[in-house]
């Protein structure tokens, strides 16, 4: 890797002051797992890294609200999330997704903020968090804002963060009796980057699905909602709607061929796995499944 400098601010405010403009060659670093993968081959050659490891402990904590909502600080490692009893209780689908995300060592260093800011479509948590209607907390020189997770992703490796903005955390709203599930399909080892990630979340009114959220990752350019699936399922009994939802998903998703499969293959995966992820959610306990 080319030589670079390293700043280690002790507060979020100082970190924001240091990252400055987008093209300044200054880059925030959290765990560094994604950055190092890009810096080693020279795809990225920052002049200075600003480490977020020393900022206030609140940004590496997991807090619960009285109603079951969760705040997860951006610097929380994926491993801490995986082992958190609060996450398992309030959003078990997140715990389940984390168990097959890479390996223990990567989860020990990778952070939630880095995971989201990386903007790679082949990540497991974005579709899950979109289905759970999570929000990203963002701080910059002009203050703080919150956006839906789905509004973070612009295009391949590009997010809607402005220059000088950092992710400070994510809130997952209380899930109540909602059912959720995530299916990760890999075409190499079980814990490989996904070829397809599908997440769904809904309420059950008797056996009728309500307030459906469906999201896709990995097979598309950016993680995103599958609105046609949501429409196909809304107000229906699952048994009557699975086929239609699968067809709608395969028609809506813009997929590409890559090392993990051809576009035609991925469309077929989407068709089949849309039904499976809905059934998996139906079978889950309230909130999700581990």
């Amino acid at each position: 890797m080319k030589p670079f400098g390293l700043a280690e601010p002790a507060s979020l405010k100082d970190a924001i002051a240091m990252i400055g403009d987008a093209d300044s060659g200054v880059r925030p670093i959290a765990g560094g797992s994604a950055l190092m993968l890009m810096m080693k081959p020279g795809i990225l050659q920052p002049e200075t890294l600003v480490s977020l490891r020393g900022i206030e402990p609140r940004y590496s904590s997991i807090e619960t609200a009285g109603d079951g909502g969760l705040f997860i600080g951006a610097m929380t490692t994926l491993r801490r999330m995986e082992l958190s009893a609060d996450v398992a209780r309030h959003a078990p689908v997140v715990t389940q997704a984390l168990r097959r995300l890479s390996n223990v060592r990567v989860r020990n260093i990778a952070t939630l903020g880095g995971h989201l800011a990386h903007g790679d479509p082949h990540l497991d948590l974005p579709p899950v968090l979109i289905a759970l209607r999570a929000k990203v907390h963002i701080a910059g020189r002009d203050g703080e804002r919150q956006i839906d997770v789905e509004d973070l992703f612009r295009s391949y490796l590009e997010t809607s963060l402005d220059s000088g903005e950092l992710i400070t955390g994510v809130t997952v709203p209380a899930q109540g009796n909602r059912k959720s599930a995530y299916i990760k399909h890999t075409t190499r080892s079980a814990d490989d980057w996904p070829a397809l990630g599908l997440a769904v979340s809904f309420s059950l009114d008797g056996d009728v699905l309500r307030d459906v959220r469906a999201a896709i990752g990995a097979a598309t350019d950016i993680p995103q909602r599958l609105k046609s699936v949501e429409t196909a399922l809304e107000g229906k009994r699952a048994a009557d709607a699975l086929q239609g939802a699968g067809d709608a998903a395969a028609a809506e998703a813009q997929v590409h061929s890559d090392a993990r499969g051809s576009a035609a293959y991925k469309r077929e995966l989407i068709r089949v796995f849309t039904g499976r992820v809905i059934r998996k959610a139906m079978e889950s306990a309230a909130g999700g499944t581990i």
Partner: peptide, 10 residues
């Protein structure tokens, strides 16, 4: 106390 990936850790 945590296993980490040396090749990706500064």
């Amino acid at each position: 106390g945590k296993a980490v990936t040396g090749c990706l850790t500064l």
